[in-house]
Amino acid sequence: MTSNRSKNGTGMIEFRGVNKWFGTLNVLKDITLSVEPREVVVVCGPSGSGKSTLIRCINGLETIRDGDLVVDGQRLGDPATNMTRLRTEIGFVFQSFNLYPHKTALENVTLAPIHVRKIPRTEAEKAGRELLAKVGLADKVNAYPAQLSGGQQQRVAIARCLGMRPKIMLFDEPTSALDPEMISEVLDVMVAVAEEGMTMMVVTHEMGFARKVAQRVVFMDAGAIVESGTPDEFFSHPKTDRSRAFLSKILRH
């Protein structure tokens, strides 16, 4: 039995020989990957390569079949690990934002801090206003999601995660559902979060973002990690045929 603490003690997120199946489809194949505290890792790869599934396993939105996944020193699936509690340390930004449509921007940000973290309402609202100002939405505090553009909604979603003061932020294609002119406003916020030292895993094809803040790019194909390296190495000198083929497709334009 593996101990509940991380063996080498340094990785904030550690995959060791992780496998996952959807029915007979092996969607994650023998994944081994360690993300250090304050590290920013970009995950890319063709559609269906398992990159979203990979980060969804980290907060237990998906469960793994075998192997070990240790997050913040706690092994997932271990009876001693309180998953609900661990999730409060992990922010997750969805491709489709998933804001609560019946709550204002501020209420979206304060809901979990008040009810899950048990922070007093006035304090949570003060912090919430500051966070919304930080993502450039000080004037949209009382707006409902339906009144906001996609880019604005995604910035609220990022503020909603930050409101929990997480140790880790996961981003699942955060700009894929956005109109092109809104992508940079979201990426700017993500860069700011990264520069504050957040541990981040970001599924994205935004090369500019990767070059600017990522320490590492992980390339996945057919459920396996095919290549991993610094953004410069990966984008300038991809080592495998599959990564070259993928890059030629996304860089063509």
Binding site: N59, G60, L61, T84, R85, R87, T88, I90, G91, F92, F94, S96, N98, L99, Y100, P101, H102, L111, A112, H115, V116, R160, C161, M164
Partner: peptide, 27 residues
């Protein structure tokens, strides 16, 4: 209620009862 609403609640550490009470039932 779209599945993403449940996932947003789960991801922010809400329990089943909190999700129902704060996110799903009001909608």
């Amino acid at each position: 209620i779209p599945r993403g609403q449940v996932e947003a609640g789960v991801a922010s550490g809400m329990t089943y009862v909190q999700r129902m009470r704060l996110v799903i039932l009001p909608q």
